[in-house]
Write a protein that binds this DNA or RNA. Structure first.
Length: 580
DNA sequence: GCCGTTTTCGGCCCGACTGTTTTCAGTCG
């Protein structure tokens, strides 16, 4: 039987294998190998079947002969004998125990072997009935910790969107600055600094002369619900909403090495330390230890990279996905920055489902220093509120023309493009006729309904839109909603090639729950010659600030300013649109 | 199990914090 396993499901299975092997106390390097392969597979853009068909499975980093063979077995049969045998030795529920903070593979293995525990519920009962105390090494504190950990695991903590994490962490840092004024520096690190679409916990780094005092101030903030752990330089706490936040306090002289260490990613750090070791330097958050035992400390990240003769690498690129090679070759891109953005090409007004009128949105954009915007209200289409038909589009166009005339009369260099966000039907046609689209300055085409299509159908749907000569931008191409909806399984390579050929821009939608396209897809699209547009999709003037999240996402895709249409002048954009 | 700017064999990143220990293993990031 041919299986329809997704990359994510295969990655999950290898991750489970690693967990089960670890519970069985098998060789930790073999465990690590399965983890690495799992991570690599999870980040792939193309389906594993494509790699297999091209005989390229072993080009995936971390995948060698043995794992390639297992992937093949999974794709062919939907099953993996090796995994089945592991499951016979360890019931799947035992793996659930790993979700409890403080319980790792060794402990989970003992709980199963010595008490026969195979689920969170059984673990809870055993703790309450006092059976855990019969195990050697299980004191009262340990059991108390496990009981608290179970309730955390049961609450099924969710990853937080980037936008919410940034807001929370800034609040925390402000509170800490107030409570512990003697801070030299304070910032966030971890996956948040790398700009991941969602983050699991918050990492805060501070530089201070009296680290223990800062840690004490942190653990006693009113925002703190519970202290998980606290030492002289580190602490881990839970906020009232269940979010975990970790603090690291270091002397100012160690700021650079500590910031690098706690920014990650894990893969980037491991690779970095290997490169350092090759030069006889052992690297940690405290700096470089030379062979003779002396230390080289770094107050900045630039010094950290310079120690192994590399230029500073932007946090968004730190995934060990080629950034070391690019840094060594001197080909790191100058990434797009928020200050490069001159325009927002996708926003809504009260003409459809927005909160503000055209003038208010325009003024909000002007206040952000933009030179031009596109008003792109929804087209009339089933289920969409107040969509515009040809007649209302004409009326809106007159309003926008009047506004542009008024700006011109006042000598204000600001232009409003008249556009639309037209729906792409499930078959790939557009919800407005071509002659209507032809009259507009700019057309965003987006799919909103029936996103659960096969890869072939979903891709062809977008390709048809790309081939329409009036379409300028494909809006939120895969249509994912973080935490609630997977995106459509669009073939990014095919979309990017077509977009490059037809001069259609691919959107990085900045909505905090979209971030679509996301980083790796942006990178692939740019490699294939496509150009992107970073848009807010604002429905409220304040939403224009979302563009910040889109910029971060584009940076994760290695985007330089020139590859982002929003950084172009009005004239340059006009030229691009004319040439289409 | 993977991998090669010393290696196709012999390595595989580093340290803080905790609990229960009388010196350390397990967990975590």
């Amino acid at each position: 039987m041919m299986s329809r396993l997704t990359n994510h499901e295969v990655a999950e299975m290898f991750s489970a294998i690693a967990d089960l092997m670890e519970i069985l106390d098998e060789d930790r390097f073999r465990v690590q190998a399965y983890r690495r392969a799992s991570d690599a597979i999870r980040d792939l853009l193309a389906p594993l079947a494509t790699y297999r068909d091209r005989g390229e499975l072993e080009t995936i980093p971390g995948v060698g002969k043995a794992i390639a063979r297992k992937i093949g077995e999974l794709l062919d049969t939907g099953e993996l004998q090796y995994y089945n045998r592991l499951q016979e030795k360890v019931p799947p529920g035992v793996r659930e125990l790993l979700r409890v903070p403080g319980i790792g593979p060794r402990t989970a293995g003992r709980l199963y072997r010595e008490l026969g525990i195979t689920s969170l519920a059984e673990l809870k009962r055993a703790a309450e009935e006092g059976r855990l105390a019969t195990l050697k090494g299980f004191g009262t504190k340990m059991i108390e910790g496990i009981l608290q950990g179970i309730s955390i695991a049961e609450r099924q903590e969710r990853r937080m969107p980037l936008a919410q994490a940034l807001e929370t962490v800034q609040e925390l840092i402000l509170a800490l600055r107030t409570a512990a004024p003697a801070l030299h520096q304070a910032t966030y690190a971890g996956s948040l600094r790398r700009g991941r679409p969602t983050v699991g916990d918050l990492d805060i780094l501070v530089a201070a002369d009296d680290a223990p005092a800062v840690v004490r101030a942190f653990t006693t903030l009113p925002l703190v619900a519970r202290v998980e752990s606290a030492g002289d330089e580190k602490a881990s706490i839970l906020l009232h909403n269940g979010t975990q936040a970790d603090l690291i306090a270091v002397p100012p002289a160690l700021w650079g090495s500590a910031l690098h260490h706690f920014t990650g990613s894990k893969a980037h750090n491991i690779r970095f330390r290997e490169l350092a070791l090759a030069r006889g330097l052992s690297f940690s958050e405290h700096g470089f230890r030379r062979a003779d035992g002396t230390m080289l400390t770094c107050a900045t990240e630039e010094e950290v990279y310079a120690a192994i003769d590399l230029p500073w690498i932007p946090p968004e690129l730190r995934e060990d996905e080629g950034e070391f090679e690019a840094a060594r070759a001197g080909t790191l891109p100058r990434l797009v920055e928020l200050s490069d953005i001159r325009a927002d090409l996708h926003m809504h007004t009260t003409w459809s489902d927005g909160c503000a009128d055209v003038r208010t949105m325009a003024e909000a954009a002007r206040a952000r220093g933009y030179s031009h915007i596109a008003i792109t209200d929804h087209s009339a289409y089933i289920g969409l509120t107040h969509g515009l038909d040809a007649e209302r589009l004409h009326a809106q166009r007159r309003e926008i023309a009047a506004l542009n005339a008024a700006y011109a009369a006042q000598g204000i260099p600001f232009r409003i493009l008249c556009g639309v966000e037209v729906d792409i039907t499930p078959e790939g046609s557009l919800a407005l006729p071509d002659d209507v689209l032809a009259e507009l300055d700019i057309v965003v085409a987006s799919a909103h309904i029936q996103l659960r299509q096969s890869s072939e159908v979903a891709t062809e749907r977008l390709l048809r839109a790309v081939r329409n000569p009036h379409v300028d931008i494909i809006g939120h191409p895969v249509g994912r909603m973080l935490g609630s909806r997977e995106g459509a399984p669009v073939d990014i390579d095919a979309l990017a090639r077509a977009a490059a050929e037809h001069g259609v821009l691919l959107e990085v939608n900045s909505g905090p729950t979209r971030l679509d396209l996301e980083g790796p897809a942006v990178r692939r699209a740019l490699e294939l010659g496509a150009t992107i547009a970073i848009n807010s999709d604002a429905h409220h003037p304040d939403n224009l600030d979302w563009i910040r999240f889109g910029v971060i996402t584009a940076r994760r895709g290695w985007a330089g300013a020139a590859q982002v249409a929003n950084t172009w002048s009005f004239e340059a954009l006009q030229e691009w649109l004319r040439r289409r």
